[in-house]
Simulated scan of single mutants.
Amino acid sequence: MVGRELSAADHPKKEVRAVLDRLVAQGWKLCKEGHWGRLYCPCEGRCLTIPVPGTPQNAGRAARKIAARAALCPLPDGDPRRAP
């Protein structure tokens, strides 16, 4: 992680902000990097990073893409955040 930590409330689009709020509550870290920010997964070794656009053309699509990429995180079997 390079940049300072961001709050999900800093994002200008409400659709993306809602997804970021949920992921940060699950343990993801949101840092200032790139054009707006980057999410780091909560796994040991930071296995997955997701770029977060600041001004997406379609905020709903950007939010769905972020959520879909976050679902690919390989959390351990015993982790309560893992989807059944």
Rank of each mutant, 00 (worst) to 15 (best):
P74C: 05
E33I: 07
K13S: 15
A83D: 08
R38E: 13
K29N: 08
A83L: 15
L6P: 00
C31N: 14
S7K: 10
C31I: 14
D79R: 05
E15N: 12
M1H: 09
R64A: 12
K29I: 12
C47L: 15
P56M: 02
V52C: 01
A25N: 12
E15L: 12
Q26A: 14
Q26G: 12
I66F: 03
D77N: 09
R61G: 04
C73G: 01
Q57A: 14
L6Y: 04
A70L: 08
K32R: 15
T55A: 12
P76F: 03
L75D: 00
L39M: 13
Q26D: 15
Y40I: 13
Q57Y: 14
G27T: 06
G3L: 04
K14I: 14
G37C: 06
C47M: 15
G45M: 10
A67C: 01
G27W: 06
L23D: 00
A62H: 00
N58I: 09
R46P: 00
Q26F: 11
C41L: 07
R82I: 10
R17D: 02
D79N: 14
A83F: 11
G27H: 05
P84N: 00
E5Q: 13
R61T: 13
A59T: 01
Y40P: 02
D10G: 09
A8Q: 01
D79C: 13
P56I: 04
L72I: 02
L23E: 01
R82C: 11
G54V: 03
R17Q: 15
G78R: 07
E15P: 11
W28V: 08
C73F: 04
N58G: 02
P53D: 03
R38S: 12
A68W: 08
V2P: 09
W36L: 09
A8C: 05
R4S: 11
R61H: 10
T49C: 10
R61D: 07
C43V: 13
R46L: 09
P84K: 11
L39F: 11
R64H: 05
L39H: 06
L48Y: 03
P51A: 14
N58V: 05
V24M: 08
A62K: 01
R81E: 12
L23C: 03
A62G: 03
D77L: 13
P84A: 13
W36E: 00
D77I: 05
H11F: 12
P56E: 02
L48W: 05
S7H: 06
K14L: 15
G27V: 07
Y40M: 08
K29C: 09
A67Q: 01
P84W: 04
G45H: 07
M1G: 11
D10K: 13
I50K: 00
Y40K: 08
R4H: 08
E44F: 10
V52M: 02
L48M: 13
A62N: 02
A18D: 08
A68P: 00
R22E: 14
P74R: 10
P51I: 03
R69A: 15
R22A: 15
K32L: 15
R46K: 14
E33K: 13
L6H: 01
P80K: 04
L30G: 00
L72N: 10
D10Y: 07
